[in-house]
Simulated assay, not measured.
Amino acid sequence: MRQFLIAGIAGLSLAGATTVAALVAWPIGSDPRKIEPEGDVQRGAYLARASGCVACHTNFEEGGAALAGGAPLNTDFGTFYPPNLTTDPDHGLGNWDVEQFAKAIRQGIAPDGTPYYPAFTYPFYANFSDQDIADLWAAFQTVAPVAESTPEHDVGFPFDQRWGLKLWRAAFFGAPETAPVDGKSAEWNRGRELVRGAAHCAACHTGRNLAGGRDPSAFFAGNDALPGGNKAPSILPATLAERGWTVDNLSYALQSGITPSGDVFGGSMGEVVQNGTRFLTQADLRAMATYLMEGEGLKESAVAALSTPQKTYD
């Protein structure tokens, strides 16, 4: 009996090792097509603000240089450190090319082929066009190099096993729904593009499951477990209306940080406004507010949006 037990354990161990080896070898992503458009620095800088790049990758609390690495994100899975995005060749993007940049932004895969942790909000950027990528790349090329490294992520087992992220991607990584909707105004569609894409509002305002994936049943319904103990309220249309929000005062709040009651946004939302949305045009702020206030049956459409199986992105 003991021999059979030992043989059984050995067999299970071998099967487990084989499974892990297969996952480690499992290729992810695809080689991006050549980025042909010429980048527009100003448009790229604008998109970087809208996408939260400056807000996340700058450690304002420590007086850090812009994009030289952000403040730590303390989560249930460990502490993540947003990396250096300056043109420094050793610690930043100085040795990258635009195609590697495209793969990182749209697919969440580093130049060495390893997947990024989803603390990086790459799932929301999967639909960025080649022109978007070229513009962002042009803007990042103007950032002065800062020779500062960021700490390694402090993540315990089993979350420190990068191959496990391949399973996470298969379960939760799908392109966001940002395409225009027929019958809706250009303003509403522009708001949809920003809210669901670049501005990645659902990253904070949607609850998460135990695996860290967004919960389809809680889309835009708020999240009480943000990094650092912060909370994000519901931004569903009915909730916003009940709390006195309108298109006018919401667009103003996204620019100024001042709420209808005369209070100001604090915590994560305060940082979003201070380092991101206040730089957006009045037209884009109003578009975002219009989309959020009108909605589109978000609770129903979220199931399809967040259950999209993984696909190959360029």
Rank of each mutant, 00 (worst) to 15 (best):
H205K: 11
N189K: 05
K184A: 07
K299L: 13
D182T: 14
R33S: 14
N74D: 05
G267I: 04
F220C: 04
A15I: 14
L85W: 07
A25L: 08
N230W: 07
N74P: 01
L85M: 11
R190Y: 01
W168C: 09
Q100R: 00
A225M: 11
G44I: 09
A48G: 12
G276I: 02
V247R: 04
T18E: 05
F4C: 08
E294G: 04
F140W: 04
V98H: 00
D135G: 09
Y252H: 14
D248P: 06
Q310R: 12
Y116P: 03
P309A: 09
P151L: 00
K231A: 08
A179D: 11
T19F: 08
V272G: 00
T142R: 10
M269K: 10
T150L: 05
G266H: 09
D263P: 03
A304D: 11
R214K: 06
G297E: 03
R33G: 15
S129A: 15
P82M: 07
F265S: 05
S307E: 07
T18K: 07
V273F: 05
F80M: 01
F265P: 02
L47A: 11
F128W: 14
Q42L: 15
C204E: 05
F140T: 07
G228I: 06
D76A: 15
A55M: 15
D135L: 13
Y252V: 11
G39I: 14
L93N: 00
V264D: 03
